[in-house]
Amino acid sequence: MPVDAEKEITKLYRALHSAQDEIGKTFYRWRQVAVEFAGADANPQDVALRAAEVFGKDIGKSILPRMNWLKGEEGFMMILGKALAGLWNTDGGRATAEKGENPGEVFIKCSRDPWPSWAKQFGVPMEEVALCRERMYQAVLEDVSVFMNISLKIELQKAIPRGQGETILRLYKAE
């Protein structure tokens, strides 16, 4: 039976987006559970940020085997930036890493992000989404910084509600 390329690609495309959708929603389902267990006195945003930190720490461990200083500082920063953008793409976003004007500066730009929509479905303030992304990346960089013996920082520069427009984070090496 000949392969119907359109059918096969459509099947794959749907499966990928369903999986991404479930990953996002699962995060918010667990967020509900965690907030319930944290009790009435806890700030739900703190709970979510703590989760982002735990995610980032673990993701950082996966990144370490690929860290390579032999490509020089600019090359290293670009590889790291691409890894962070790639992570966002896996989560369903459309992100790229672009070289900044200063040496060792990389901008991670996301032009489409499904996470604010999922947050809205679960009644979560959308600004939390951008803060969680920033916190997760900061946690990724903690181990990378110690491992490479340099101080890496990332900061949120622009966040767009509902993921429309462009979200920008600046990755740089602090002196």
Partner: peptide, 8 residues
């Protein structure tokens, strides 16, 4: 020093 492990 506390340098993270490269291999899990």
């Amino acid at each position: 020093s506390t340098v993270p492990q490269r291999l899990r």
